[in-house]
């Protein structure tokens, strides 16, 4: 598929990652279908999808890098420019949360962290994200930090959460 080279580098997709991706192959009738799980693995490893990793992944799955990038750019979960912070904070702003103060919460965190939604703080600790419905409307307004849900939040609780996260050791990302 990739015209100019068969010797695509292996700096991003090392053997471990390749094995992990390969373990998904039996689930699907063709390799391209393993793209989304593979992207999750890459994102988990690097905190974003590096451009070179796209090329290597495309080579591994037997498709063109453009077909990978096409999918990557569609999903709002994947970052392409730089790694996400240690804590990725999703603030739900959908109706159930918004009507109970989700928008205010997002604004508060924007001010507290000094970054706009989608950006990462300079110290690389926090990435703030505006989420479209986290599916946690029963604990609105909801906030998700990496893979843990918090809610119902109040401005006070949110500030407290930030403090706790700042003080806490590195999180265990389980998924």
């Amino acid at each position: 598929m990739i015209s100019e080279n068969s010797a695509v580098g292996r700096q991003f997709l090392d053997d471990e990652l390749r094995r992990a991706i390969e373990s998904y192959f039996p689930r699907y009738p063709h390799r391209q279908a393993a793209l989304l799980p593979a992207l999750h693995l890459v994102h988990q490893r690097f905190g974003f999808i590096p451009r070179e990793a796209i090329v290597e992944l495309a080579d591994f799955l037997g498709i063109h890098p453009a077909e990978v990038a096409d999918v990557v750019s569609f999903y709002s979960f994947f970052k392409q420019d730089r790694p996400v912070g240690k804590y990725r904070i999703w603030v739900c702003r959908s109706l159930s949360c918004a009507c109970r103060g989700g928008e205010g919460l997002l604004e508060l965190l924007t001010q507290k962290l000094g970054v706009a939604p989608g950006q990462t703080t300079v110290d690389g600790l926090f990435t703030l994200e505006a989420a479209e419905c986290l599916g946690a409307c029963d604990c609105a307004p909801a906030v998700m930090v990496n893979d843990k849900l918090y809610g119902p939040m109040t401005p006070e609780k949110a500030e407290q959460l930030l403090e706790e996260l700042r003080a806490a050791p590195a999180p265990e990302v389980t998924s």
């Binding site: 598929m1 990739i2 451009r51 796209i54 090329v55 498709i63 063109h64 890098p65 453009a66 077909e67 990978v68 990038a69 096409d70 750019s73 569609f74």
Partner: peptide
């Protein structure tokens, strides 16, 4: 397969993958 669609919704554009 050089061409792709980037992003989604009304922000999407046609593009190539850099370097290809």
């Amino acid at each position: 397969g050089e061409l792709m669609i980037v992003d989604r919704g009304n922000e999407q554009v046609i593009d190539i993958f850099p370097g290809f």
